[in-house]
């Protein structure tokens, strides 16, 4: 490929990515969007620089449900296909985090355990810190809080705080490995 055609295709790809992210309120530099990304709901979605959203496997769903809900993706975030982020209050994904295929992150249970199932319980803002890796098919329930650099094994169900640098796995989640110092 000649340099001219290469740069041309890169420009076109960038424009197409921006077109796919047109529902976002803020988009950083050079986003890469492959496949489909569904951004719906009345809330706001902010996307940082050099974000990679790979929706070729299945569409990525960023659902900011109510008008005051907020989804923030930091710089260098990578999300694989089928991931679904549902925010009623807020979901913050820190810089450099990687979210695997078919993960589900929700900050509200949507139904109470008992009683009238049509009223919503209060939501807990979710924070996924810098450099977190979430394996595919993991489920992040309200109350999940992933601190800096922790790793979540595929298929894990999390509803509490995970300390920094720890690897967790299983359902219910337990610590598989702590950070090796030095």
């Amino acid at each position: 490929m000649t340099p001219l055609r290469q740069s041309l295709s890169r420009e076109l790809g960038g424009l197409l990515s921006r077109l796919k992210l047109r529902r976002c309120q803020e988009v950083g530099d050079s986003p890469t969007v492959l496949g489909r990304v569904w951004i719906h709901g009345a809330g706001r979605v902010h996307v940082g620089s050099r974000v990679v959203l790979d929706g070729r496997l299945a569409p990525i769903e960023l659902h900011a449900m109510s008008s005051d809900s907020l989804i923030i993706l930091g710089d260098d975030v990578a999300i694989e296909g089928g991931a679904s982020l549902e925010a009623l209050s807020s979901i913050t994904v820190g810089p450099g985090a990687r979210l695997g295929a078919f993960i589900k992150a929700m900050d509200n249970q949507h139904h109470p355990l008992r009683g009238n199932r049509h009223e919503r319980p209060p939501s807990v803002p979710m924070v996924i810190a810098e450099g977190v890796t979430v394996g595919s098919r993991a489920i992040l329930l309200p109350g999940a809080q992933l601190q800096k650099g922790c790793t979540v094994a595929p298929g894990t169900v999390i509803s509490r705080k995970i300390p920094a640098g720890v690897t967790v796995g299983g359902a219910p989640a337990r610590v598989l490995r702590r950070e090796v110092t030095g």
Binding site: K104, L113, R114, I139, L141, G155, T156, V157, G170, A171, P172
Partner: peptide
């Protein structure tokens, strides 16, 4: 009863029970 997210149910769940885990 409620079956929690991501759980794999292998045994009977009685009424008014939360089943969770694998």
């Amino acid at each position: 009863s409620v079956v929690a997210a991501g759980s794999i149910v292998t045994q009977d769940v009685p009424p008014d029970t939360l089943a969770m885990g694998n």
